[in-house]
């Protein structure tokens, strides 16, 4: 049971964007270079993130991306779900079609465990905002610099 690279890269790219676009727009190329990811792949993810109101793009020679709303208003869960869909280990937890087509829906014990797992994942990703992550990242950087001094 794994998060796909879509979910992982999207969250990494949004944190990188949030950190670098506080004053000005940031280009995808810079983000891709820093994260060592393909720019084309990030472009596809950013189309979805833009449609979901998480990032916005400004066209033109000086164009680029920035967050579409304040970092404290975006949760990690929102970013991951935008590209990944609901974070459930089995389809019957969200799709009523899958649930209804299953004859054991009402007597399925495993489903209780899958629901418990899904709730744990939701609790983590919905309690952390992009702003929290930027602050953690800044603290991390500070510690590294102090270490070198």
């Amino acid at each position: 049971m794994k998060i796909s690279t879509k979910g992982r890269y999207a969250l990494e790219a949004v944190l990188d964007l949030a950190y670098h676009s506080s004053d000005e727009l940031e280009s995808l190329k810079n983000i891709a270079d820093r994260l060592d990811k393909s720019k084309n792949y990030l472009e596809q993810l950013f189309v979805i993130l833009r449609q979901n109101g998480i990032v916005e793009s400004i066209r033109g020679a000086q164009g680029g991306y920035k967050l579409a709303k304040p970092a404290k208003k975006i949760t990690a869960g929102e970013v991951i779900r935008a590209v990944e869909g609901e974070l459930v280990p089995v389809a019957c937890l969200v799709s009523s079609k899958d649930a209804m087509s299953c004859s054991r829906y009402k007597s399925c014990v495993s489903r209780l465990l899958w629901k418990g797992m899904s709730d744990e994942i939701d609790k983590v990703v919905d309690s952390v905002t992009i702003e929290d992550l930027v602050l953690k990242y800044r603290d991390m950087k500070k510690e590294t610099i102090e270490y070198f001094i």
């Binding site: 998060i3 992982r8 969250l11 983590v124 952390v128 990242y137 991390m140």
Partner: peptide, 18 residues
């Protein structure tokens, strides 16, 4: 990469623990 580490430490490894 520090960004990738930051997300790992604050999101993925927390989910793994839970």
């Amino acid at each position: 990469n520090d960004i990738i580490y930051c997300i790992y430490a604050n999101i993925w490894s927390k989910i793994d623990d839970k």
